[in-house]
Design a protein around this nucleic acid. Structure first.
Length: 62
DNA sequence: GCGATCGA
DNA sequence: TCGATCGC
């Protein structure tokens, strides 16, 4: 699928909200629980990597 | 605390 | 090897 293509609304470490395309998306869930989807992003302003939640319907990719 | 992931 | 991610 064409994932890691669609921008996600995320909060950068600076506190700015931007639409960024994740470098990678994966599920993070304990056994028997739903958990969340996590994306690895890079803030274009600082170049810093950070992780943030992505919508449950966002495809895994990366 | 659990879960996966990877930059630092 | 650890931090940080999020919701249960």
């Amino acid at each position: 699928m064409a994932a890691c293509t669609k921008p996600v609304r995320v909060k950068t470490p600076d506190g700015a909200e931007k639409e960024l395309v994740p470098k990678k998306v994966w599920g993070l869930a304990p056994k028997g629980r739903k958990g969340v989807k996590i994306g690895l992003f890079q803030d274009p302003a600082t170049g810093k990597y950070f992780r943030g939640k992505v919508p449950d319907d966002y495809p895994e990719c990366g």
